[in-house]
């Protein structure tokens, strides 16, 4: 029998530590054979972007991440899942999102992390606003068709 699934879902302004989160997920476990992590960072768009502002729907953001995580744990028989999404002002080079999936074998861990990211992009209520280096508000980032297509591949 596998040990209990550890699921950590957080929405926060502060940064996260990849190593610490992996350690927390795997501490004391002897059934985990694979850990895959994805980190999403803020890019500067070739020097044009000074910051991203992340807005979220408090309560619903956590609930939706938990819902997506639950589906992934079930579908890929994950042994552990961590999903952390930051909000507020985020500078180029800083972390935005972290997903860690743990499973007995690598394929489930890869697929679990990939699945969670694809659904997080299209279903978790977060919105990015760009701030340009010249001080102007670059406006709200538009949703990409490619993100919807990435989600559709899991049907």
């Amino acid at each position: 029998m596998p040990e209990a699934v550890i699921s950590t879902i957080r929405v926060q302004t502060e940064d996260f530590e990849l190593q610490a989160e992996v350690a927390a997920l795997t501490a004391g476990r002897h059934d985990i054979g694979a850990v895959v992590s994805f980190s999403g960072l803020c890019r500067d768009e070739q020097g044009a972007l000074s910051a991203l502002e992340l807005e979220h729907y408090p309560g619903m953001a956590e609930a939706e991440m938990r819902r997506i995580g639950g589906i992934a744990v079930e579908r890929f028989s994950l042994l552990g899942l961590t999903a952390i999404h930051r909000y507020g002002k985020i500078l180029p080079g800083e972390n935005i999102v972290l997903v860690i999936a743990a499973a007995p074998h690598r394929q489930a861990a890869f697929d679990g992390a990939n699945f969670v990211m694809d659904f997080l992009k299209t279903s978790a209520p977060f919105w990015k606003k760009e701030h340009a280096v010249d001080g102007t508000e670059g406006g709200w980032v538009s949703a990409k068709d490619a993100d919807g297509e990435a989600q559709d591949k899991w049907r």
Partner: peptide
């Protein structure tokens, strides 16, 4: 009831 644009997180 929440109203918002398509989401762009991640």
């Amino acid at each position: 009831i929440g109203l918002f644009p398509p989401m762009t997180g991640g």
